[in-house]
Design a protein around this nucleic acid. Structure first.
Lengths: 211, 211, 211, 211
DNA sequence: AATGAATGAGGATTCATTCAT
DNA sequence: AATGAATGAATCCTCATTCAT
């Protein structure tokens, strides 16, 4: 009751903050599943609230608008994907472009394979609404491209890769991976994810013509 | 329903049908520009009517719903793209996969280069909603894939192309072209459309590794 | 059915416009009664629609927002009051300030007496919402003040009225009339409107001290 | 409830009550500034809490509702104004209506001049809603009117003032002062507050016609 | 006493679609 | 055929108030 009785200080705060974070996470998870299921535009805040098992207005305590919620969600996805890719590249040397490429592509495929909602969010919802959200998709692409372009440039300098615009080549890889991952959601080509990843690597490096 | 089937005086009827067709075209053109500009979801039927310089409800005389309008529009785009690609393949023999591939890719790029609205429609709006419209995109892809897969299969039998799942390879080409065309709308990589088309062909056939 | 059968031209148009005007009037009347009854803020667009015997959204065909509706309504009231006052001043000479003053004040009182809703709108709702609507009230005041100030200035030049700031004196008259009219809505001082009007004139001209 | 009535140890309790009073004052001050700034309807309890540097729900510990808060605030303002006026009348005799009137009017003007927020509260927010809060404004008026009517009645008996309904005359004075004070918030007529006060007195007593 | 999270009714506005003319 | 007025369901967001801690 009295102020003194409260276990004040950082302890209390930390709990509050942790709970706040937990709630945010809860809402974000709900939003992810709802948006992935029905699409951003079609989904309503009521749907999200229901999925989060919270009341209607509670969501607004954590996010000021539907759009902000979406942005926050996408940032999370971006970050998660990025971390995954970076981790896969961690031990690799720029001197082995094959390996680096293979690592990045496989990591991306694995990420998408494990998290189909992320694929929908990134490759379907990011496009919606007159491009207002494309920044997220291009954000992901650009980072991926930055990383890959570096790998490719190094390889070009060493003569391991032919002279083509590195960024366009990098974008091509990103696009290929993204689109193939997305395709897997609706079309079954009867291929294992790993096989597809390897196919991409081979296609990129050696093309379809026999050597 | 068809012009020939009209029982009435051909003169009158023909004019009516022609006018009807003209109106439909007028509305479709308006819809294309409006949807491409602002996106399907964001655009309203009022926007379309205004762009078509028709009254609010007139659109419903020709299309029963917003979705039907979109579908009709997409079918038109699909058909136009398909015709373009088929034309480019007309003189080519299946025995020269390089040529066929190059022809198809160039034709696609040219089509998209001339009609940026089509790109937006196909690669943004088709994605935009919970799969309801993806059929068009996949429709295009599938047809493109069918054609390409045939080319590739023939080439494989002849040993000109390595043994990979033809449909996946074909999809990769389609995806690559589509994504690169879409990227050109927002990002300037400083490359001519023809150069990008050739880059795709080279990438597909020979990969990035020097031969 | 055929275009020729329509009694085209100005006739049709005029009817449409007249109807449109009628509907606007219908809605404005409904809004007036609703706002006067419950206040602008408390009233909902649904209330207005219901009072106008129209559907919810129909109101938006004629007015783009609740605020615009209110503004339109106030402009009407302003104009009506102004016309009434001007009419009362029509035959009067500036050389007879007593008469002019009396005429203006009586006309104002009569207007308010006949239209109690107007009083509520002007002296209660105009104030609401952080002054966003005060312009209407001050608009009325300013015009009234302009007219009165002219009368007073002329009288001052002729020595019929003492030297005081004409605009402040004019505002005083306007304020007095407005507040007394508003008071009549809630408090019964047992006085006839005409008596109050004359009281105001006397107070303004001769004060409370016996002559 | 009152400090004296507290049964507990006076030290502790007194502190508690004093703190409670202090908190109430803190909130009332915040509410006054917030409401005066943005209007009662537009302001939120969150705004008030923020201005009071208290938590969101703490306000409800001291006031059961937004309306109660407003009422409490208005009562404070009423009381403050009343005290000011009574003080100004303290030494005056009813036999000198000029002096009494002048004193009351000047006191009122000074009060409003020093506290512009009070003017907004009384003359804007009191009006703002369907009569729910007008009681405060009329409360102030009625008390002012009571006092003035007494002065005027006495003067009438003594023949110093003509025979008019005392309450209406008194209301007129109150309205005039209030409206002129409010006008000063938005319109600069270039007049000192004292001059305006004297103008009101002169207008009321001697009118505009030269004597 | 105080915090701030949670609730949920309420309200303005939009827009696809229908319909009388 | 065409018009444009009318409908009303749907949705985002606000905010007074309550409540667990």
């Amino acid at each position: 009751m009295s102020t003194a009785a409260a276990p004040a200080g950082p302890g209390r705060r930390a709990v509050g903050d942790a709970q706040k974070e937990a709630r945010r996470g809860q809402i974000l998870a709900a939003a992810k599943s709802v948006f992935a299921e029905a699409g951003f535009q079609t989904s309503t805040m009521a749907d999200v609230a229901r999925a989060a098992e919270l009341s209607y207005g509670a969501v607004y305590w954590y996010f000021t608008s539907k759009e902000e919620l979406f942005h926050a969600l996408m940032e999370l996805e971006e970050e998660a994907l990025r971390l995954r890719i970076l981790a896969s590249l961690a031990g690799l040397s720029l001197e082995e472009p094959d390996q680096a490429l293979r690592g990045a592509i496989r990591a991306t495929f694995e990420f998408f394979e494990e998290d189909r909602a992320a694929v929908k969010l990134l490759f379907r919802d990011s496009y919606a609404m007159g491009g207002r959200f494309e920044s997220h998709l291009s954000g992901i692409y650009e980072r991926f491209i930055d990383d890959l372009a570096e790998v490719l440039s190094a390889a070009q300098r060493r003569g391991q890769v032919i002279a083509v615009p590195a960024r366009v080549a990098a974008f091509s890889v990103a696009a290929l991976v993204g689109q193939l991952a997305y395709r897997r959601l609706t079309t079954d080509d009867g291929l294992d994810a790993g096989v597809v990843a390897d196919f991409v690597v081979h296609l990129i490096m050696d093309g379809l013509r026999p050597r």
